[in-house]
Design a protein around this nucleic acid. Structure first.
Lengths: 161, 161
DNA sequence: CGTATGTCAGACACACTGAAATAA
DNA sequence: CTTATTTCAGTGGGTCTGACATAC
């Protein structure tokens, strides 16, 4: 029953020294685990990351076309279609043709959608609390700051090679 | 020219407020970009993350069976096969039947393999330097420490639910 | 005309599962 | 008979590309 025991977990002592110094490995493992945590949290109510992204983008920046939504959330135009279908099916958003530009749809969040967003919000707040439990408030700020700076630096670097 | 511009990059201002507070999102974006950086670096010499993992595991812990290698690297047994095929084809490892247990193969790193590992090592050192450029040495240690603690905490949490 | 939008169909790399064959 | 090892074949979720019809 050796069970190839769940990859992407810290295999502690037996992991090669060199790998432990690789930033991409550390941040990759952390991201993988964090992703599972929030995936489970959202999955427990039948939701998905992308639902949260779209709903929060709509709630914060108001109605938008699908192309705008794609830009704001980082979800591909092509993949947005399915997400909006699901959200519309459950009445969380409205998809109506734009009278001013007949190519576009105007996506609007509904009351059910705002309610759902609140639900996901508390769910994710709990998940964040769970994941960051071992860190103090100051350390969490530190972590966000450091990650944010590295992230911004890489984004800038890959924007102009 | 809208160009659906490369996902998983910081879209700075237009990203919903709520998302910016999600740890999984931040660490996920960072991991994605870091992954691309090292992917490109290794790809530039026709290598792959897994090659580095296997070679470093062999160099540091000595010859091993494929099952042992899988445990040490986190690469699945099933996927290891292809990786070892590639490495063997280029003469970086030797795959020989274990005389003491005829189910097993004994994987050994060759001189060409050690040489290759050195090459990848410097490549990755450069990549790490590039990615972490905006951080001081103390900040890099901080970041590794914080990520390591969060990581260990999540690994422990998902080990005993 | 060239360009933007919504949509669909699929490629692709990746973690991961299942099962077969062999040997312990 | 049960378990471990190597191997292959395939699933599934996720990112991403390409193309198409329609409208600007």
């Amino acid at each position: 029953m050796d069970t190839q025991d769940d990859l992407q977990f810290d295999r502690g002592e037996q992991m090669p020294e060199r790998m432990r110094h690789q930033f991409s490995r550390l941040v990759g493992m952390t991201a993988a685990q964090a992703g599972r945590v929030v995936g489970r949290a959202l999955g427990s109510v039948g939701a998905h990351r992308r639902h949260f992204m779209v709903l929060s983008a709509l709630a914060e920046a108001g109605p938008a076309s699908q192309a705008q939504l794609a830009d704001r959330t980082g979800v591909f135009r092509s993949d947005l279609v399915a997400v909006l279908n699901e959200l519309a099916e459950d009445g969380r958003i409205m998809r109506a043709p734009d009278p001013g530009d007949k190519r576009r749809n105007v996506i609007t969040i509904t009351e059910a959608g705002t309610e759902r967003l609140g639900e996901l919000d508390t769910l994710l707040a709990q998940a964040n609390e769970d994941m960051l439990a071992p860190l103090s408030a100051a350390e969490r700020r530190q972590l966000f700051d450091l990650l944010g700076r590295v992230n911004a630096h890489m984004a800038a670097a890959s924007a102009k090679p």
